[in-house]
Computed example of a mutant assay.
Amino acid sequence: MKKLQLTAEKIASYGQYLHREERSPGTIEKYQRDVNAFARWLGDRDITKELAAGWKAYLLEQGYAPVTINAMLSALNGLFGFLGWDAFRVKFLKIQRSLFRDSSRELTRVEYDRLIASAKELGRERLTLLMEAICATGIRVSEVRYITVEAARQGRAEISLKGKIRAILLSSKLCRKLLKYAQKQKIASGAIFRTKSGKEISRRQIWAELKGLCKHAGVIPTKVFPHNLRHLFATIFYRACKDIVRLADVLGHSSIETTRIYLVTSGVEHQRQLERLGLVS
């Protein structure tokens, strides 16, 4: 097989390809970060099937979680596919689906309420409304830009991602709060959540502001990140309607298996369910 080198130019071209494929900025950033990590590990060596598989073994030795390793391999395999180097693709680790979520990372409704209350106490109006908008709609943090003045007026947001368009309904109460905030900030059209300079708020800033709220709210930082608000929405929505197909549509999932992951309960909840069975005298 011809010797092949992984260059910075090839990695940059991969990033441009992901952009053309309309991958979210966060996905592009993560994929390039993972590919660059592989490139640093590879050094000046030519790529071989053995070295590609060796990186997986290296990540295991370094103590990376299996889910994290598979995510990194997904980025690498995507690069290989883009370059036509399919012979180097690495097999994923086989992971048995977990029966329940890690309670140290599961955000509860009570903790969400504490976050909202703390944000209000600190006068963080934008952050309060932002958390409510994500948690009341189930949108991804990359989709916050679709919460616009026009969407609030119509009661629905049209979200375009990866070539798919889905409509998200906004409750009347949320719409009133969004429009009131927009009017106060003198935002006549377009994205509602913006920085002081008028730019759309970035996912990195949203992440940082949520983390900064943890101590005041008394919530463990490992539980507080934008995607967990989406998980909380999914859990509460499913408990209300018991319709996983409808939930998958709302979340924008192409596979119900993905939606099932969102509905995995914590070990604590599973324990309570076992106790309720009353099968031990």
Rank of each mutant, 00 (worst) to 15 (best):
K3V: 10
K3T: 14
K3P: 14
Q5R: 13
L6I: 13
I11Y: 06
Y14G: 02
Q16V: 06
S24A: 07
P25L: 09
E29P: 02
E29F: 11
E29R: 15
N36W: 08
N36A: 14
A37N: 14
A39S: 15
W41N: 01
R45E: 15
K49R: 14
E50P: 04
G54P: 05
G54Y: 07
W55M: 03
K56E: 12
A57F: 14
E61M: 12
V67I: 09
V67M: 08
M72W: 08
L73H: 04
S74Q: 10
A75E: 10
L76R: 03
L76Q: 04
G78C: 06
L79N: 06
F82L: 10
L83P: 09
L83M: 14
F88N: 02
I95C: 04
I95V: 09
I95E: 05
R101H: 07
S103N: 09
T108F: 05
I116D: 02
I116R: 13
K120M: 10
K120T: 11
E121Q: 14
L122I: 03
G123I: 14
G123A: 10
G123C: 09
E125W: 12
L127F: 07
T128Q: 11
L130C: 05
M131P: 03
E132Y: 04
A133E: 01
T137F: 06
I139P: 03
I147R: 04
T148C: 04
A152T: 01
R153W: 12
G163Y: 08
I165D: 08
L178Y: 01
K180Y: 12
Y181L: 08
Q183C: 12
Q185F: 07
G190H: 09
A191K: 07
F193D: 00
R194P: 02
T195A: 02
R203H: 11
K211T: 08
C214W: 15
H216I: 07
A217P: 03
V219P: 00
T222L: 12
V224L: 04
T235P: 01
A240G: 00
C241Q: 13
C241S: 12
C241F: 10
D243W: 00
R246G: 00
R246N: 01
D249G: 05
D249H: 04
V250R: 05
L251D: 02
L251V: 04
G252A: 02
H253G: 09
H253E: 13
S254P: 02
S255E: 15
E257N: 14
T258W: 04
T259W: 07
V264F: 06
S266V: 08
G267I: 15
Q273C: 04
L279W: 08
V280Q: 11
